[in-house]
Simulated assay, not measured.
Amino acid sequence: MAVRTRVTEMLGIEKPIIQAAMGWIARAQLSSAVSNAGGMGIIETSSGELDAVREEIKKMRTLTDKPFGVNVAQAFVRDPDIVQFIIDEGVRFVTTSAGDPQRYTGILKEAGLTVFHVVPSLSGALRAVEAGVDGLIVEGGEGGGFKNPKDVSSMVLIPQVCEAVDVPVVAAGGIMDGRTMAAALALGAEGVLMGTRILASTESPVHANWKDRIVEADATDTVFLNRSGPGPALRALRTERTSRLQETGSDNIFAEFADTQKVYFEGDLEAGIALTGQVAGRISDVRPVGEIFERTMAEFDEVRGRMSRLGEGTA
Rank of each mutant, 00 (worst) to 15 (best):
T45H: 12
S47P: 07
S47F: 02
G48I: 01
G48H: 10
L50Y: 15
D51A: 13
D51L: 08
A52Q: 14
A52R: 15
V53K: 11
E55N: 15
E56C: 11
I57S: 03
M60G: 07
M60N: 09
R61M: 00
T62P: 00
T62E: 15
T62S: 14
L63P: 01
T64L: 00
T64V: 01
D65F: 02
D65M: 00
D65G: 11
K66Q: 13
F68I: 07
F68V: 02
F68S: 01
G69P: 09
G69H: 07
N71R: 09
N71P: 12
N71E: 09
V72T: 06
V72S: 01
A73T: 03
A73E: 00
Q74M: 14
Q74G: 02
A75Y: 00
V77M: 02
V77W: 04
P80M: 03
P80I: 00
D81F: 08
D81W: 08
V83Q: 00
Q84P: 09
I86G: 11
I86Q: 10
I86P: 15
I87A: 02
I87N: 08
I87D: 05
E89F: 02
E89T: 03
G90A: 05
V91S: 09
F93K: 11
F93A: 06
T95S: 13
T95Y: 07
S97K: 01
A98N: 01
D100S: 13
P101N: 05
P101V: 00
Q102F: 14
Q102H: 15
Y104N: 08
T105A: 04
I107V: 11
K109C: 08
K109T: 10
K109N: 04
E110Y: 03
E110N: 15
A111T: 09
L113Y: 07
T114H: 08
V115P: 12
V115M: 05
V115F: 07
V115N: 11
F116V: 07
H117A: 04
V118R: 12
V119F: 08
V119C: 07
P120G: 01
S121H: 05
L122V: 11
L122E: 10
G124F: 04
G124V: 04
A125Q: 09
L126S: 03
R127E: 12
V129D: 12
E130I: 06
E130R: 15
E130T: 13
A131R: 13
D134A: 10
G135Y: 05
L136T: 06
L136V: 07
I137T: 06
I137M: 11
V138H: 04
V138P: 10
E139S: 14
E139P: 13
G141L: 04
G141R: 13
G141S: 15
G141P: 13
G141A: 14
G143W: 02
F146E: 06
F146G: 03
N148F: 02
P149C: 00
D151L: 10
D151A: 14
D151E: 15
V152I: 14
V152Q: 12
S153G: 15
M155C: 02
M155I: 12
L157P: 07
L157Y: 05
P159T: 03
Q160N: 06
Q160T: 15
E163Q: 15
A164C: 05
D166W: 06
V167M: 01
V167P: 08
V167C: 04
P168A: 00
P168Y: 00
V170P: 06
